[in-house]
Design a protein around this nucleic acid. Structure first.
Length: 272
DNA sequence: CACCATGTTAGCGG
DNA sequence: GCCGCTAACATGGT
């Protein structure tokens, strides 16, 4: 479920709280999440300062003062929380970074995801990031860039929007929302779509993702006790998880079916 | 209990 | 190579 808006929301919180903090303790309860041994990880990370927070696709990047970068992918169920270091929740985190501030940055339920560490200063060289397509919200991702990418493809639009190698950071929830906004059915073949259709998708993609970022996405786990942002986009979802409920535009029931192995949500009356 | 949901990758057949 | 499908992965929910 975490896609660009959810990860961006976590990054906002991290920028406001942990940048310039020094890591003084490391807890690893799930060594499988790492790409190196727990003692190597702990050795490299301890006493380093977190100097920058970035996002690439659905991956959080924490840059450390010793020219290393931690990459965190939540995959299905992972989440991040800032806790007081003496809170019991710290003990069940997959990987937790104790900070000099007395708080702990906890990454929990990293079951299929990972917390990797790479020696690098150039983020694009990081192994986890090399296969990813362009960031849809970057300034150089123009409508022409989008048309060029999609025009020549043969498949259905929804799986293509979720293809991380083609375009990075869009998952099941927002692909459904973007297509409802575009009035395009998820099964439509890109090849059979007009340039106008694709242009509409581009603009919906921009507006939906930016609005969802502004409002804090749809994640249901708060980053910290005073977190008023996370999840505020949930009431704005128009089709995702609304199977059988009336469409906000035309009142006909929202439909679901498998498209490209995932659940597609759509309105057969509004989308064509 | 079996099955489904999620994101990603690998593998297979067309 | 691309497309569409399936399985695998971990876990919790029905």
């Amino acid at each position: 479920m975490p896609e660009i808006p959810e990860i961006e929301t976590v990054c906002k919180h991290l920028r406001n709280t942990v940048v310039n903090s020094t890591i003084v303790a490391v807890t690893i309860n799930r060594a499988k999440s790492l790409n190196i041994t727990p003692s190597e990880f702990t050795g490299i990370v301890t006493q380093q300062k977190i100097i920058a927070i970035n996002r690439r696709a659905k991956i959080i990047l924490l840059t450390l003062s010793n020219q290393h970068t931690i990459t965190v992918h939540f995959m299905l169920e992972g989440y991040a929380q800032l806790l007081d270091s003496d809170e019991p929740n710290v003990l069940q985190a997959s990987v937790a970074l104790g900070l000099a501030t007395g708080q702990t940055l906890a990454f929990s339920q990293i079951n299929l995801g990972y917390v990797h560490l790479f020696p690098t200063i150039n983020l694009e060289e990081i192994e986890d990031l090399t296969e990813l397509g362009p960031e849809p919200l970057s300034v150089d991702f123009t409508v022409d860039h989008f048309l060029h990418l999609f025009k020549t493809r043969k498949g259905m639009i929804k799986p293509l929007l979720m293809d991380q190698k083609l375009i990075a950071g869009i998952g099941n929830v927002y692909s459904n929302e973007i297509l409802f906004c575009s009035r395009i059915l998820p099964t439509r073949k890109v090849k059979e779509m007009s340039e106008e259709d694709l242009t509409r998708i581009y603009h919906c993609l921009q507006s939906i993702l930016s609005r969802a970022i502004q409002l804090g996405g749809v994640y249901d786990i708060k980053f910290s006790q005073d977190d008023m942002l996370t999840g505020n986009y949930i009431p704005h979802l128009k089709v995702a998880y609304r199977t059988g409920a009336p469409c906000y535009e035309c009142s006909s029931p929202i439909q679901t079916k498998r498209v490209g192995g995932r659940n597609a949500f759509y309105c057969t009356n509004c989308q064509h």
